[in-house]
Design a protein around this nucleic acid. Structure first.
Length: 474
RNA sequence: CGAGGAGUAGCGCAGUUUGGUAGCGCGCUUGGUUCGGGACCAAGAGGUCGUGGGUUCAAAUCCCGUCUCCUCGACCA
């Protein structure tokens, strides 16, 4: 049998989810491993998902007044060292270029792990007057962080992302927009990726190196572990001061700007897979699926079958559905499995019997249910895609909500994360307690809840300053 | 860096204990029959056995060195 091994691996989903994940991602040809350890080659099917994410996010950014730009890959080492916390945080994981043109460089160059420094440098030149603010720019690029352990999409040495960087005249404005951007991400995750997330502020320990405050959105994976799916950072004047981002204000005085940044990466693709995937393979949310409907001809050598399939393909395409007619010479059964594994939301089966009855068979990937529709009824396909989207979200949301539990002490917290839950608990705000929770339960503070409903710290029992969502994380 | 495991055809593996000149499944190529849940038949192509040395008439197999990869522990979008 072609993929007995693969099928058995998929069957292991509950017990060995990460391994299932890696196998599915590689075998469905989303990615391949690169020759350099920890790097991945994103293949066309996987990249198409990324392109859809880019398109959808760009539209949202544009509505927010963000422009796209591009900054260099190589950053002088001296830029990195200008912001003390920043260099300390990233030093262990940067790749450094020491030679070029056959000679040793006078100053080593860092392969960007993030671009705050080089963008800060350029913003320092560009910002002169209050009229230049707010300045909102975004770049789609690759970054490199030399990670010790890697997994496709979830953690790779090199990854694709967008990083937005903005400068404001006031701290209030910058901080406000840090939150607005977080909510933009949340809405994007829910509407476009059909993925519920928890948003909130990060603790000092989990904060971005050099930021005043970091906010994150966390998604819950099948196994109950948390994945940081996006972050926004309020930098205060830290980077503005390090790079001389100054402007003359309305009152004629020279002031430092306030900056913020935000990013999401190809990790979102991993989040989608881990959120919606099942035993049969991928389940892609319709808004980002490269192929939204695949048409599988049955008995396609029979008179008129292929013609009918291509005609239907044209009809669906005109209605705005991303569609593919699979006219390869594989057997229908093989095609069914192939496209289910690849997560195509809707399959249309079309054979002589259907054509005669002027019907088509619609199969939805999320529930594996079949229904009949009139042949060529594009509205039926679009309706089905829409309900798949909303049901995917509803299902994931219900799962997440059912797996958020409260804990009063460390044992309850440990039991909670062991059972694959996010654990809501009080925290005194002390780093020592945060560290102790990690040591005791291998769980980290994902985000702080908006409200503070817990009275006491889960660790030390002193009055709680915050309510925290703790979880194991990828 | 600490502990464990693995390198043999594109992929997954057997063969190593007890040396004898390379094998299986999938995939791939060609032709034919098929096609409503991973079809079948026939014929083919494809391997410096990670790498360097040693022992031997003879090494995938034994000995010494070395490199790489994977899994688990400390950092991270």
């Amino acid at each position: 049998m072609a993929s007995d091994k693969f099928v058995s691996q998929i069957a292991d989903i509950e017990t060995d989810f990460p391994q299932w994940y890696t196998d599915v991602v590689v075998k469905t040809k989303l990615v391949d491993y690169g020759p350099v350890k920890g790097t991945m080659v994103i293949r066309p099917y996987g990249y198409a998902i990324w392109e859809n994410i880019q398109r959808e996010l760009d539209a949202r950014f544009k509505a927010f007044g963000v422009e796209n730009a591009y900054f260099p890959l190589l950053i002088p080492m001296s830029f990195m060292t200008k912001e003390a916390e920043h260099v300390e945080g990233f030093a262990p994981e940067v790749a450094v270029v020491t030679h070029a043109g056959g000679e040793k460089l006078a100053e080593p160059l860092v392969v960007r792990p993030t671009s705050e420094t080089i963008i800060g440098h350029m913003f320092g030149k560009w910002v002169e007057s209050w009229r230049d603010l707010p300045l909102r720019q975004n770049q789609w690029c690759n970054v490199m962080r030399w990670e010790k352990t890697t997994r496709p999409f979830l953690r790779t040495s090199e990854f694709l992302w967008q990083e937005g960087h903005s400068v404001y005249a006031s701290g209030e404005e910058a901080e406000q927009e840090t939150l607005s951007m977080l909510r933009l991400y949340e809405s994007f995750a829910e509407k476009t990726l059909c993925m519920p997330v928890l948003i909130g502020r990060k603790t000092e320990k989990e904060k971005f190196a050099g930021a005043v405050a970091t906010y994150g959105m966390e998604a819950m994976m099948h196994d109950g572990k948390s994945l940081q799916a996006g972050t926004t950072h309020y930098m205060g004047q830290n980077f503005a001061k390090a790079f001389g981002v100054q402007f003359t204000d309305k009152d004629g005085t020279l002031k430092y700007g306030y900056t913020m940044s935000y990013g999401v990466s190809t990790r979102l693709i991993g989040a989608i897979i881990m959120t919606h995937g099942d035993q049969r393979g991928l389940v892609l949310p319709p808004p980002v699926a490269p192929i939204q409907a695949v048409i599988v001809p049955i008995a396609m050598k029979k008179e008129g079958v292929l013609e009918a399939c291509f005609a239907l393909g044209k009809t669906l395409e005109k209605a705005g559905v991303r569609v593919k007619v699979d006219d390869s010479d594989n057997s229908p059964g093989w095609k069914f499995n192939e496209w289910e594994m690849k997560g195509v939301p809707v399959r249309v089966e079309l054979g002589p019997r259907d054509i005669e009855a002027n019907k088509m068979l619609l199969f939805r990937r999320d529930t594996c249910a079949k229904e009949e529709a009139d042949l060529g009824d594009a509205a039926a396909v679009k309706t089905l895609l829409a309900s798949i989207s909303s049901e995917l979200y509803a299902k994931a949301k219900a799962r997440m909500q059912s797996r958020i539990v409260a804990a009063k002490d460390l044992d309850e917290l440990l039991g909670g994360v062991n059972a694959g839950n996010f654990v809501r608990a009080g925290w005194c705000g002390e780093r020592g307690c945060e560290d102790k929770v990690k040591e005791f339960a291998q769980a980290t503070a994902r985000v702080l809840a908006e409200d503070n409903s817990e009275a006491f710290c889960v660790c030390c029992g002193k009055p709680a300053k915050h309510t925290v969502f703790f979880a194991r994380a990828y």
